[in-house]
Amino acid sequence: MKLIKNVYDFYAQGFKSMTTGKTLWRLIFIKVAVILIVLNYFVYDRSIDTEYENEAQKIEFVHGNLVGKSR
């Protein structure tokens, strides 16, 4: 228990005493929110896993592209 409290205090005091770090954490939160929420769910919402239900369909899709003539 004492170890957990020490670790907690270490981080808590560290975050409290930050100056430039606070601005940086704000930036990190905004950026991660944009990447993980906006980009992940609205921009990159389609992938082979979302478009096809099972392994056989995914194989069929890629196989078709591999044997089809592209450039």
Binding site: K31, I35, L39, S47
Partner: peptide, 22 residues
Amino acid sequence: AIGVATGLIMEFEFGTNWANYS
């Protein structure tokens, strides 16, 4: 702090833009 997680976007691109490759 500014650079962290910018590489994640490339991983998303692998799934959506480069499905055959992935």
